[in-house]
Amino acid sequence: MNKDVKEDVALAHAQMRKGVLEFCTLLIIEKDTAYVSDILKELKLADLIVVEGTLYPLLSRLKTEGLLEYTWQESPSGPPRKYYSLTPHGTKQLAQLKTIWKTLTTSVNSLITKSA
């Protein structure tokens, strides 16, 4: 019984993470141009990602949708890196997402306060 509850919670957590991963990735890139390692570091700090492999298809999709672009830069050690930055379209979309997120958190927070 207890175990089932735990699994349900883990599943819900994963779903929530999935939902915000794209948003958070865009936020990290907005702050400063970033390469994969930077993005991963930040996402991990925020406990938003479990395995790194999932980021790559996401970046690929965001790039295809025209929200991201990248430039190659030499690395002090190892092969050249892809530095991602937001396109104007990406910036616009991120602004909308921010608004949605603010509304969403307000609603959720108010629901939490009410129930408490």
Binding site: A14, R17, E22, L48, T54, P57, L58, R61
Partner: peptide
């Protein structure tokens, strides 16, 4: 894990 966890694809 790609499928089970955070994939949005």
């Amino acid at each position: 894990q790609f499928d089970a966890t955070d994939t949005v694809e």
